[in-house]
């Protein structure tokens, strides 16, 4: 949960916080899609680079540990995943590496090796771009932006309130954990369990009381059923659309012509002595 808090703080302090949320979303989606529909490995590499650059700009060149860890984690998972893909090649093609590892039979072909790299870069490009978006767009701003997409008011309102209360409840829960510690609530694992349960129950009761009181308070502030928005996040300008689609098309075309420029298997061939 504390990661969410950090993400939230990051989003608010981002240099891109005032960019149009929908614009950012469109931009990221375009890059993601074009990365998937082209076969050139260069396209996801470019997307990944754009993602990293955006993040560097967003955080003013101070990439927080949280983000680095998240990307690191994604890389790690994808290394394993693409590793698997690379060794499960199509047996109708010649193998560049064949062997047995425990009960796995390894059959790596040129295509499977290349495919693995492609998927690896698509995946980390995706993760990086999504993180760049998430770390620069606080949830309330996003939900306000969604209003423009004709999402029903009730849902937006729910998102806004849940978001607000999630923090209040978290705050309360953390204080209660502190209070439990003061009363030796973590002296032994059984006790610790009970203390957590107590803190949960306390937080729950608090949420009930808060909900009850909020109703009256909302009425006092003239709430009439729709949540007003004061400073609407910047609207998505045409520029965003042009930029996003332009870049996507450009990359797509670029991908068509560069599909064969980089062949990872060939690159690595000398290293491993593969005969292609």
């Amino acid at each position: 949960m504390s990661e969410q808090v950090e993400m939230d703080e990051l989003a608010y302090s981002s240099r891109m916080v005032n960019w149009a949320p929908l614009g950012k979303l469109l931009f990221v989606m375009c890059l993601l899609i074009v990365g998937i529909v082209t076969d050139s490995i260069l396209v996801p590499i470019i997307s990944f680079t754009i993602g990293i650059l955006l993040m560097a700009y967003s955080t003013n060149l101070k990439l927080p540990l949280l983000i680095i860890l998240a990307i690191g984690e994604a890389i790690l998972i994808m290394v394993l995943g693409s590793g698997m893909i690379s060794i499960l090649g199509d047996h109708s093609q010649p193998a560049i590496w064949e062997g047995q590892f425990l009960w796995f039979s390894i059959y790596m072909t040129e295509d499977s090796f290349n495919l693995a790299w492609l998927i690896f870069f698509r995946a980390i490009a995706g993760v990086t771009l999504m993180l760049a978006f998430a770390s620069s767009t606080p949830i309330p701003l996003l939900s306000y932006a969604l209003k423009g997409l004709r999402i029903p008011n009730e849902i937006i309102e729910l998102v806004v309130l849940i978001y607000r209360y999630a923090f209040l409840l978290l705050e309360r829960f953390l204080i209660m954990i502190d209070a439990a510690q003061c009363r030796l609530g973590y002296n032994g694992s059984m006790t610790a369990m009970k203390s957590y349960a107590g803190a949960m129950a306390g937080t729950f009761i608090f949420s009930m009381e808060l909900a009850e009181k909020s109703e009256a308070a909302l009425a006092c502030r003239n709430y009439d059923g729709t949540f007003p928005i004061f400073r609407r996040p910047a609207n998505m300008s045409v520029l965003w659309v042009i930029l996003s689609f332009g870049l996507a098309i450009g990359l797509y075309v670029f991908g068509m012509y560069t599909g064969d420029v980089i062949n990872p298997a060939k690159l690595f061939a000398p290293l491993f002595g593969w005969d292609l």
């Binding site: 309360r172 204080i175 209660m176 502190d178 003061c182 009363r183 107590g198 306390g202 009761i205 608090f206």
Partner: peptide, 13 residues
């Protein structure tokens, strides 16, 4: 021992 400001923070049971 600490007596917290808000009693609701210390209610576990």
């Amino acid at each position: 021992s600490i007596l917290f400001q808000n009693p609701n923070d210390m209610m576990f049971k």
